[in-house]
Amino acid sequence: MSDTGTLTGKAEGTRGKTARPSLWLTVLSLTAIVLLIALGIWQVERRAWKLALIDRVEQRVHAPAEPIPAPASWPAVTTANDEYRHVRLAGRFLHDRETLVQAVTEEGPGYWVLTPLQRDNGTQVLINRGFVPSERRDASTRQSGNPDGKVEITGLLRMTEPKGGFLRNNVPQHNRWYSRDVAAIAAARSLTHAAPFFVDADAGSQTAGGPIGGLTVIRFPNNHLIYALTWFSLAFMLAGKLFVTFGGGLFRRTRFVHEPEGGPDAAARRTGSDAGTIVEQA
C-alpha cells in the first residue's frame, strides 16, 4: 500500500474515532441533562404553587374576621385550607394556665404568652396573646394587663408546631417550650377540650400592660425562579460540553496537502524519509 493510502486510512480512522463518543459517558451525560431539566421544570411548578399560596394567604389575612371553625369540624382543619384565616372568638382567659414559649421577634428575644381561652361551649382555644421580653416573664409583672372578664379576640388561625424548635425539643416536665405545640401544651395544662390549633391575637386585641400582639410574621421564601434558572443553565452547559466533546468530530474536515518535491515547504513538512502526501485536520 502506498504512503498516501496509509496516511489517508489513518486520517479516516482518526476522524471516525473522534466522532464516535464513549457510550457510558454519553449515557451519563444525557441522563444528567434530563435530570437537570426535570429539576428546572419542578422548580417552575413550585414557583407557581408558592405564588398561589402567597396570594391565598394575603386574601385570608385581609379578609373580615369570621368565627373560628366549629368543634365538629376541627378534625378537618388543615394548613392548606385554614392557616392564617382571620378569625374571631370570645371567652375568658385562664391566666393561671398560661404557657411561655421562647421567641425572637422584632422586639428582641423573649417569650410568646399562650393563654387558654375558655369558651361558653366548654371548649378551650390557645391564644397567643403576644410577646413579652425576658424581664416580664413572671406573670406577677403583668397582672394589670390580664383581663378577668369576658373578652373578644380577633387574630389569625395558626396550626400547631409539634415537638419543638430547631435542634431543641420541648420539655414539658420542666416547663421549657420552644414551639407552640398545641397538643403537648393542652396536656400539660389539663385542657380537656382544646382546639387543635391556636390563634395569634392581633394588635387590636392586646390590653394595656399586656403582651404585645400583632407580631405574626408572614414570610414565604420564594427563590424558585433562581433555582430553576440554575438547573436549566447547568443542563445547557452540559449539553454544550457534550456537543463540543463528542459532536465536533462530525463537522471536522480532513484536508490533503500535496507538496511537490522540491517545493519551498517540502523540508519543513517531511516527517521521515519520504515527503509524500501530508494529512492535516482543517
Results as ranks from 00 to 15, higher is better:
residue 4 T to A: 15
residue 6 T to L: 12
residue 10 K to A: 13
residue 11 A to G: 05
residue 12 E to P: 00
residue 13 G to W: 11
residue 16 G to V: 06
residue 17 K to N: 02
residue 27 V to P: 04
residue 30 L to M: 10
residue 31 T to R: 02
residue 32 A to Q: 02
residue 33 I to H: 04
residue 33 I to V: 14
residue 38 A to V: 09
residue 44 V to P: 01
residue 48 A to F: 13
residue 50 K to A: 11
residue 50 K to G: 06
residue 67 P to V: 15
residue 71 P to I: 11
residue 73 S to Y: 07
residue 73 S to V: 09
residue 75 P to C: 07
residue 75 P to S: 05
residue 80 A to R: 15
residue 83 E to M: 01
residue 99 T to H: 08
residue 99 T to V: 15
residue 103 A to H: 03
residue 109 P to N: 14
residue 109 P to H: 12
residue 111 Y to P: 03
residue 113 V to W: 02
residue 115 T to R: 05
residue 116 P to Y: 09
residue 118 Q to H: 12
residue 120 D to N: 13
residue 120 D to H: 12
residue 123 T to D: 10
residue 128 N to P: 06
residue 132 V to A: 03
residue 135 E to H: 04
residue 137 R to T: 00
residue 149 G to H: 06
residue 153 I to F: 08
residue 170 N to K: 06
residue 172 P to C: 00
residue 184 A to D: 08
residue 192 T to R: 10
residue 196 P to G: 04
residue 200 D to Q: 09
residue 202 D to Q: 01
residue 206 Q to F: 13
residue 222 N to S: 08
residue 228 A to K: 04
residue 229 L to P: 03
residue 230 T to K: 01
residue 232 F to G: 03
residue 239 A to D: 07
residue 240 G to Q: 12
residue 245 T to R: 14
residue 248 G to Q: 03
residue 252 R to P: 00
residue 268 A to E: 15
residue 271 T to Q: 14
